[in-house]
């Protein structure tokens, strides 16, 4: 991957035919995996495989409720959330020109966690000042918190031109907001369990309304991201080169960070802080095929979706009818993948 950086393949988007067919093959694998996982998600849940298959062939009121109102929206919602995280990860890595960048880099996760804490406090204690957070509900408060964190980060770094400043501000904001969250939770320790579920991610309550919201956000994010992808290609040649090509860095970064915030905030709001999908999905794409950014964004989106769908299946299957936090699954698998990646790279060197 590092031996063949994304930027080399991009010269005016001319791919060698071999690479193109590999890319198509890769995309086809992602789509096929998604189709397979969606099918599997209908028969994997709290009932045995035979029971679930029986439901598919001869459904009654309750089983069709479980199949079409619970399992299907859950897996589709997980796909959209994963896709948003994959897209966000690819954008973050492009904007920061760092393969270790991830969607939560700008403090979104901590901001969302703070929003959730405030909404829980408001719902529980009916504190007048927090009424807004209570009205938004957990999802809305998480979104607002995530967006507020990004705005704070960008304000602190005085704009988006200095990547180092942005990263630093992101870290500072993340620490600060986590500290506030911890302090608030000290007063209400019984909220810890709910918070922990949020911080470990959960796909359990994704219904059709959540799934369609995530789907709309994905469309809203993916189209402009594809339009600006060329800019990321230019940026990967270096900031000076990009500017000499007539690119406005500020506009590019601001748009891309806007898309990143929207994508991350929506995903975090619905499924909590699911780690590693945004980091691993773009890696997997680049590891397999050399691509330009438009293709990377597409690939990471499809791959992220399939990854979170798979993680969701694992989380509901392993100890059913109890359930593992989906973020714990992605962190375990994603972490293991990164270890392998590191090990392979160090051996290559």
């Amino acid at each position: 991957m590092s031996a063949r950086p994304a930027s080399i393949a991009l010269h005016a988007g001319r791919l060698i035919d071999g690479d193109r067919s590999r890319l198509y093959a890769w995309l086809a694998v992602c789509v096929a995996a998604t189709a397979l996982l969606t099918g599997a998600s209908l028969v994997i849940g709290t009932s045995s495989l035979e029971t679930s298959l029986g439901w598919l062939t001869s459904p009654d009121a309750q089983s069709s409720l479980i199949l079409w109102q619970i399992r299907l929206p859950r897996t589709i919602g997980a796909w959209f959330a994963g896709a948003l995280l994959g897209l966000g990860g690819a954008i973050a890595q492009g904007v920061f020109r760092n393969a270790l960048a991830e969607p939560y880099l700008l403090g979104t996760a901590s901001g969302a966690a703070l929003g959730v804490t405030l909404s829980l406090l408001a719902a529980d204690a009916s504190i007048g000042e927090l009424a807004w957070a209570g009205k938004l509900g957990v999802t809305g408060a998480a979104c607002v918190g995530a967006v507020a964190a990004i705005v704070l980060t960008i304000t602190l770094s005085r704009g988006v031109l200095q990547t180092a400043n942005l990263l630093l501000a992101g870290i500072v904001v993340a620490f600060l907001l986590s500290a506030v969250t911890s302090l608030l939770l000290l007063a209400r320790p019984e909220l810890w369990r709910t918070m922990q579920s949020f911080l470990l991610g959960s796909t359990g309550f994704l219904g059709w309304s959540s799934a369609s919201m995530l789907g709309i956000v994905l469309c809203v994010c993916a189209l402009p991201a594809a339009l600006f992808a060329r800019g990321l290609d230019a940026l990967s040649l270096g900031e000076d080169t990009a500017q000499s090509l007539g690119l406005s860095l500020a506009v590019l970064r601001l748009c891309m960070l806007g898309i990143l915030s929207l994508a991350t905030a929506a995903a975090v709001g619905e499924v909590g802080v699911v780690g590693f999908v945004g980091l691993v999905a773009p890696h997997l794409v680049r590891e397999t095929v050399a691509v330009n950014h438009r293709q990377l964004l597409l690939g990471a989106t499809l791959c992220g979706g399939a990854l979170l769908q798979a993680a969701d299946l694992v989380s509901r299957w392993v100890i059913h009818p109890a359930e593992l936090p989906v973020g714990a699954v992605t962190a375990t698998v994603g972490g293991a993948y990164l270890v392998v990646l590191l090990w392979r790279r160090s051996r290559r060197e």
Partner: peptide
């Protein structure tokens, strides 16, 4: 056998009605 305070798949509650 699920333990004292298990985290459930919400679907399970719907199924058990």
């Amino acid at each position: 056998d699920l333990g004292a305070f298990p985290k459930l798949n919400p679907e399970y509650v719907v199924r058990e009605n």
